[in-house]
């Protein structure tokens, strides 16, 4: 039942083609053309309301374009498929059933795709620093614990596409420290990871490419790791608006 994590890396390609989104008369995403590939962690950076979360929603088919398209491995979201077949998504707040424990909640979700068995789910909970045998109901969890459980739900099925909107929200230092190896493991496996983070330092530490977004438009892509790294410029705030 558990998804086999083999040596063969998965290949995922997410292509935005002239993606434009209006809500009413407000331009939310402006002619986004972007190609994201597996085995990378892309960090979205921008001010509040710049369109980061909307871009993430667009990436997993939660919203539809006014014009343009999103294509995942040659299949158009909203036309060929309604959502990516294998995706782990945490956008805004994690949402679970308040009267169930963390383990029960994740088992409920895991039962839908049958890609994670009990031991895998327990392992995912341990990896985010929670106790799978904790008998407290979700409603009794602290904000940080809720966030950790949300992250565990994203990783438990080892999805090909991982989307994390502000995953470090409400997390303490130890939580952020736990997140990094998880992301790196999934990247090594070949997953495509798209994340946003309000803290530049955390984003720099987690992502290997940063996408700057302003007023719904991509203004720059910056390599933060490897030979072409422009991280120094980015961190010192030399990029537009930072």
């Amino acid at each position: 039942m558990e998804k086999i994590i083999s040596d063969v890396k998965i290949k995922v390609e997410l292509v935005f083609s002239h993606y434009t989104k209006y809500i009413g008369k407000n331009l939310i995403l402006d002619d986004i053309s972007l190609t994201l590939q597996s085995g990378h962690i892309y960090g979205l950076k921008g001010r509040n309301g710049s369109g980061k979360t909307m871009l993430m929603r667009a990436a997993c088919g939660l919203i539809y374009p006014t014009s343009g398209s999103v294509c995942l491995d040659g299949k158009y979201l909203g036309k060929d498929i309604s959502f990516p077949k294998s995706a782990g998504v945490l956008i805004e707040n994690p949402a679970f059933l308040p009267n169930e424990t963390g383990l029960q909640n994740l088992m409920d979700l895991a039962s839908l795709k049958k890609e994670a068995d009990l031991e895998t789910v327990k392992q995912a909970i341990r990896e985010v620093g929670l106790d799978p045998d904790d008998r407290r109901k979700y409603r009794k969890y602290s904000l940080g614990m809720k966030q950790r459980l949300g992250i565990a739900a994203v990783f438990m099925e080892h999805p090909d596409l991982i989307i994390l909107d502000e995953p470090t929200n409400a997390l303490d230092e130890s939580g952020i420290t736990l997140l990094k190896p998880l992301l790196e493991r999934e990247r090594e496996r070949g997953a495509l990871i798209l994340l946003s983070c309000h803290d530049t330092e955390d984003l720099y530490a987690l992502a290997d490419q940063i996408i700057l977004i302003e007023s719904g438009k991509i203004v720059k892509q910056v390599q933060t790791k490897g030979e072409d790294s422009h991280a120094a410029d980015f961190q010192t705030g030399n990029e537009t608006g930072f």
Binding site: L62, S82, F83, V89, I91, N93, A95, F96, K113
Partner: peptide
């Protein structure tokens, strides 16, 4: 309102 719908539709087809 809670966002739980998102958890579901990411794992099974909307319909």
């Amino acid at each position: 309102k809670s966002g739980y719908q998102k958890q579901m539709v990411m794992r099974v087809p909307r319909k």
